[in-house]
Simulated assay, not measured.
Amino acid sequence: MSTPDAVPGRETRPPRRRVHTRARLLESAERVIVEHGYAQTTIEDLCAAAGYTRGAFYSNFRGKDDLVLALFDRHSADRLDQLERLLDGPGAVSAEGVARALLEVDALERNWILLFLEFRIHAARDARLGAKLDEHDRTVRDALAELLQRCCPGVARGVAPVGGVAATLLAIREGILARTAGEGPGAREALEAAVATLSAILPELGIAPTPAAPEPESAAPEPES
């Protein structure tokens, strides 16, 4: 029996049930794999947490690597949404506020950083997976560049192309997160030094307003003779 041709211009969408299954697998995986790490989590662990069979898993993801990349895509989108709300919100945002939004994470996100570092090392030993992670990085870079152009008109008049600015900010973020993944005074000192340095650089890039120079104090009037 032949199937009807696809209607031109109409998108082919996965069935709603499959979309729900994929979303549930991602939500469960986020809890399990972020807590236990990439290497310690098995496909069976992910299926058990979501309440699905291996068949359901493999109908949505090619493997554990594919699922982790999907988690990274979703997490990056959430972080960009947070940054957009900060940049596009009411009132002026300080350079330090932007720097902290880029570099600082709370305790709940610390395991995310450990997972990302673990997965990046894993991908460095696998050329095919490394290429997929590079594609993820380019997508995030382009999304950040588009966000900066939309929310920070001054970035177009900055000292560097916006794509290069976005790539550099992401590289700085990743380096600082790696340095501060552990807790301790050294990690805090490194973070504060990076925030201070980036706060001074961001206005030059057109991303945050240049702090206003303090007005000179007026001289006291001379007493009348």
Rank of each mutant, 00 (worst) to 15 (best):
R18H: 13
A23N: 14
R18F: 05
V34D: 06
C47V: 15
E35C: 02
T42M: 03
R16P: 05
E35Y: 00
E35L: 03
A29C: 03
C47A: 11
C47K: 03
V19L: 07
R22K: 04
I33Q: 04
E27K: 07
H20F: 11
T21W: 01
R24N: 13
R17V: 15
G37V: 14
Q40D: 13
L25H: 11
C47T: 15
D45N: 10
E44L: 03
C47G: 10
T42V: 06
A39H: 14
T21M: 06
R17N: 12
A29P: 09
I43G: 08
A23D: 14
H20R: 13
A23G: 12
Y38R: 02
T21R: 10
D45L: 00
A29K: 12
T42N: 09
T41I: 07
G37R: 02
P15L: 03
I43M: 08
R31C: 01
I33V: 11
R22F: 00
E44V: 04
E44A: 10
V19H: 06
H36W: 14
A39K: 07
L25S: 13
Y38K: 01
T42I: 04
A48M: 05
L46V: 15
C47F: 05
G37A: 11
E27R: 11
A39V: 12
I33H: 06
D45W: 04
G37P: 06
E30M: 04
E30D: 06
T21G: 05
A29T: 03
R18G: 08
H20A: 14
T21E: 11
R17A: 13
Y38S: 01
R17E: 15
D45Y: 03
I33R: 02
V34G: 04
I33S: 02
V34T: 13
E35G: 06
A48T: 07
L46G: 12
L46T: 15
T42P: 04
E27Q: 10
T41G: 08
C47N: 08
R24I: 00
H20K: 12
E44Y: 01
T42H: 09
L25Q: 12
E44H: 04
A39R: 10
V34E: 10
E30R: 07
A23P: 05
E44P: 00
R22M: 01
E27V: 05
P15G: 12
A48G: 03
A39P: 05
Y38D: 05
S28W: 08
V32E: 11
H36I: 02
D45H: 12
C47S: 09
E44S: 09
R22V: 03
R18W: 11
L25A: 12
A48L: 09
R31P: 03
A48W: 06
V32K: 02
S28H: 10
L46A: 15
T42D: 05
Q40P: 01
P15A: 14
E30P: 00
R31V: 01
R17I: 14
I43E: 06
C47H: 05
A29S: 13
E27W: 01
E35R: 14
